[in-house]
Design a protein around this nucleic acid. Structure first.
Lengths: 143, 143
DNA sequence: CTTACCATTACGACGCGTAAAAGTAA
DNA sequence: ATTACTTTTACGCGTCGTAATGGTAA
């Protein structure tokens, strides 16, 4: 149905990426993702690969990086996916990538701890709820 | 060694709770945890139970609530732990607790998704690293 | 007196939400 | 002409970090 090079304006692009308009514009301002074209009247026009980039950014968010760092990492990922790399550049890329990998590891441990803590608290709340409502069945009926 | 009612000033209290001084003061400003005493010269003095409260707040953080909501929930938890409750108040407490439990559930799901996403990305980074550094052993030696 | 600790006040950063006023697309 | 979409600009918010300036504890 749609030509592969169809250009979308910000509303559709944001909806596809699951981001708000404000967020998409802010990412552009911060140098993360820029639309590859503008209409005559100044409307942002996003290509498919622009939208891919938006999606990648969204999936990166759980890493807990700043937008500046995400821009940097995005650049690293793109460059390290190109097959032919000069050995010098390859080493430099590798070094940076190791840094971000270490950051990612820390983040993952943090998320694991937070998850465990949240589950523990959730259990405590269930216990207290049990004391407050010995007959939770009545709730279900009302609902 | 220490009397049970020993009062600590903010530095030690914050260190024990694993929070910054700024954060402890801000929590007080927001009505979360206030020191139960002040020295003659105006230094904040924290009792053991004050510090317990700081610790509870810190453990609550993974729930992703606002400080205002945490203050509210803290109040709920304290009140619902007291054994004797009038039935009317018990119902009210239960209702609020259910709200926060639902919030906690959403948060837990969010954390699970974020964790999965972070792990996926971490794997991609490992793959790229493999391409950049076919001999990662050399790194270990240097370290 | 000195040194380590603490007080308050205030400005800044980050990642957006949200509104205002106006232009563009179809 | 209307309606839905978009533009830029700008202020606000929550949770602190980070001075700056000065008082307190021992």
């Amino acid at each position: 149905v749609p030509a592969a090079d169809r250009l979308l304006q910000i509303g559709e692009a944001a909806a596809i990426a699951g981001l708000s308009l404000r967020t998409v514009r802010y990412y552009e301002e911060m140098g993360l993702v820029a639309p590859s074209a503008r209409s005559e009247g100044g409307f942002r026009l996003y290509s498919e690969s622009d939208i891919d980039r938006l999606l990648v950014v969204k999936r990166m968010k759980p890493l807990g990086l700043s937008l500046e760092e995400m821009a940097h990492l995005l650049d690293l990922l793109e460059r390290s996916e190109r097959p032919e790399l000069a050995p010098a550049e390859r080493d430099a890329l590798g070094a940076k990538l190791e840094e971000y990998s270490a950051r990612a590891d820390e983040r993952i441990e943090r998320l694991e701890r937070d998850l465990a803590e949240a589950r523990t608290l959730r259990l405590r709340m269930s216990e207290l709820l049990g004391r407050c409502r010995p007959t939770p069945a009545a709730e279900k009926v009302r609902a």
